[in-house]
Design a protein around this nucleic acid. Structure first.
Lengths: 206, 206
DNA sequence: GTCTATATAGTGATAGAC
DNA sequence: GTCTATCACTATATAGAC
């Protein structure tokens, strides 16, 4: 979409698109070059290795996702409103990038190195640990006030992640196995968004 | 585990294990042969093409999954018990085969041909359509009797699938990012199973 | 049934011309 | 910055010996 003049960036955009739709192993630098309209040597000129090109794209996506989660947690409304807005933000972001969940999942599952990389750089990062602590404190507070039923914060996280992410992971199957049009797919996502919000609210209700 | 004398079957077992852990693109017939302890030519002697070898394994797994779902639906207990037992069956089956969800997902997402194959052979199969109709009828009945709140059967399916499948999809991250032992992972799965059952019951409660 | 050998094509990466 | 040419490898698949 965002066509750029600079070859360096065009390569990155095309590479991202191909990595997103095919994964790392099935994408070759030759194919990237072909779709960009340059030679394969140029891809290596700018990024040296395929792995290096991938890492830049991967890191950028992970950072964007973490950033989104961080923003979703900064919410002073009632807990119901907070849940509603957070889930809504996730769905909206993923509607603009529906292949992201599969892209991240695939590379994390099939490459232990990338998990190690993520653990060293993010899980051990105090600012992300702090974020979780704040979320945990907020939930304890709401429990004390009787606004929500006693729930483990990690469980709530996993539940929301499951319901949100799986919607997008299964989208290609929903579309092709049930022969849905793009408009129908969009309606389906919006329907699931509302459904997920209502279910999570109900689960949290005392 | 089940080591077989016949080379044909040993190749299949090794291939399955490799496809499961690395995916189709990242697995070569040379690697399969090396781990079996035969030549690469033998792999092609028995299965002609890598794609063909994969198809047989893939089909077998999909059939096993559909069979499991079919069995889970044959339950005359109360709807609460039915939900409980179905989810329990899914978790138990996947604990014995935790890579299955990713294996099936990866190949279905990144290969439109496989989705087409599935649609032609299963979605259009009347016996599977019938299964869904029976499930739909059962839910209508339970709604009329006031046992559960009004819910779209497809939505319930997606919710259960999300909560169950995502648990196993995210397992490698849970283990490595949080540095969990195998025992801890097992406890976590059992914990999520109980949690998912309770959540779905609560969602369905009138 | 299992092997060796090989055809053919594709891969990631680099050297060097312009 | 972009190209051509090429290297060393690996891939899938097949032919033919035993």
């Amino acid at each position: 979409m965002t066509t750029n003049d600079s070859m360096e960036l065009r390569i990155r955009e095309v590479a991202q698109q191909l990595f997103f739709s095919q994964g790392y192993a099935a994408t070759s630098t030759t194919q990237i070059a072909r779709e960009v309209g340059c030679t394969q040597a140029l891809v290596h000129y700018y990024y040296r290795t395929k792995e290096n090109l991938f890492r830049q794209i991967f890191l950028e996506q992970v950072l964007a996702a973490l950033n989104l989660i961080g923003r979703s947690l900064a919410n002073e409304d009632s807990f119901d409103r907070f849940v509603e807005q957070a889930i809504s933000m996730y769905f909206d972001a993923l509607m603009g990038n529906p292949r992201l969940p599969f892209f991240v999942l695939e590379e994390l599952v099939s490459n232990p190195e990338r998990r190690k990389y993520l653990r060293e750089n993010f899980v051990k990062n105090p600012s992300y640990a702090l974020l979780y602590m704040q979320f945990d404190a907020r939930m304890r507070q709401e429990q004390r006030e009787g606004n929500i039923v006693k729930t483990d914060p990690f469980d709530l996280m996993m539940t929301i992640a499951s319901l949100t992410v799986f919607t997008f992971l299964s989208l290609p199957m929903y579309r092709d196995l049930l022969s849905r049009t793009d408009d129908q797919v969009k309606d389906y996502i919006l329907h699931r968004k509302a459904e997920v919000i209502n279910m999570v609210k109900k689960i949290l209700k005392p």
